[in-house]
């Protein structure tokens, strides 16, 4: 299609109105009814082939029949997700660029960096929530420690000779909280991936780890790890027999990760609502519940408003978290 200069000029007032004042309700509703009328892009903040990428591609595949459109996954990896976040925030707010990522991680980024490139709550809108997932406190399966109380006893006895492993900001925060509540001071050893911790856990160099659920569930089924508790305040439906750390004396510890589909903030409300409805068809299905349960996560569906409020709450909470875990913001 060829666009003449005249058409471009004529289009400016309409665009300005759409951006500045929002589309007129009737017009926007019509746009939402037709949505999606073409290919939709899912943005993934991790490189192709990473665990998160598998996740995003799974949902792209499940959303395809629901949206009845081609869904293309675009990997915009790098800078701790900041590149994908900036890209989405600057995309056209029409619902065709959907960022499938963890708002909890975006909230953390607001404090991990001195100058976050995007104010996430102001520039992104959560259209649909996907899941809630905890981190797990784990010990090696050969360890005699069976409960949190026993672990604390061991850690107290070893004093500063005790060590623990962390793999991500959430893992650092949950571990720091745990140590603070019991007044213990084991030494932190940072790892890039959960897999790297395994040999040091087996040799007894690490007394405990705060692992992501994918790794923790897989390795506990494999007989290599024992999970002692989850970092969400309540138990997970996927793992009803695994008590929360809160129940076991780490009072009020509640640092869940959660995943969501996000769009640029100016996306018209009817399109956000339509996306929410479409995502719920997939999220509320039994198949997705079972898929999530394998990774130790619960599906979670919420309204865009509820989710956005949770997002804002997380951003505030992370301000305290990084102080607790003694993380220096970077620039």
């Amino acid at each position: 299609m060829k666009i003449t200069r005249r058409e471009l000029v004529a289009g400016i007032p309409a665009l300005a109105a759409a951006n500045g004042l929002g589309l007129s309700p009737v017009f926007a509703q019509e746009a939402a009814d037709a949505y999606p009328s073409r290919e939709v892009k899912f943005i993934c903040a991790f490189p192709a082939g990473s665990g998160a990428d598998v996740y995003v591609r799974y949902f792209a595949e499940r959303m395809r029949p629901v949206m009845k459109r081609t869904i293309v996954v675009e990997n915009r990896a790098g800078a701790n997700g900041n590149i994908a976040t900036t890209y989405t925030a600057r995309a056209k707010p029409d619902g065709y660029t959907v960022y499938v990522h963890a708002p909890s991680a975006l909230a953390a980024n607001m404090h991990l960096f001195k100058n976050p490139p995007v104010d996430v709550v102001k520039e992104l809108q959560v259209a649909a929530t996907i899941n809630r997932q905890p981190f797990m406190l784990t010990v090696h399966a050969d360890s005699p420690v069976k409960t949190i109380n026993e672990l604390v006893e061991v850690l107290r006895k070893k004093g500063d000779k005790a060590s623990y492993g962390t793999t991500a900001p959430t893992s650092k925060v949950a571990a720091a909280w745990f140590n603070k509540v019991f007044g213990i001071k084991p030494v932190e050893i940072a790892y890039k991936t959960a897999g790297d911790t395994m040999n040091d856990m087996k040799s007894g160099a690490l007394d405990y780890c705060m692992h992501d659920p994918v790794h923790a569930v897989a390795q506990s089924n494999n007989g290599a790890l024992r999970m002692l508790g989850v970092t969400t305040k309540g138990r997970m439906k996927a793992l009803p027999n695994l008590p929360s750390l809160h129940e076991q004396g780490v009072t009020d510890l509640d640092v869940p990760g959660w995943w969501a589909a996000m769009v640029p903030k100016d996306t018209p409300k009817p399109i956000v609502d339509k996306l929410n409805k479409l995502w719920r068809e997939v999220i509320d299905s039994e198949e997705t519940r079972q898929f999530m349960a394998k990774f130790g996560a619960d599906t979670w569906s919420a309204s865009p408003e509820e989710a956005q409020a949770e997002f804002a709450k997380d951003v505030r909470a992370w301000g305290d978290y990084i102080k607790l875990a003694n993380i220096e913001p970077q620039g």
Binding site: P47, G49, S50, G51, V54, Y58, G195, M198, V214, A218, Q219, N221, N222, G223, A224, F291, K294, F295
Partner: peptide
């Protein structure tokens, strides 16, 4: 044998196994 991917390609294979409902590892 351990359910630990040793490089990114093995990580994708692990993802594929898990999606198929197979827990990689000694089992």
């Amino acid at each position: 044998t351990l359910g630990l991917p040793s490089n990114p390609i093995m990580a994708i294979m692990m993802g594929a196994m898990m999606i198929q409902g197979i827990q990689p590892g000694s089992a």
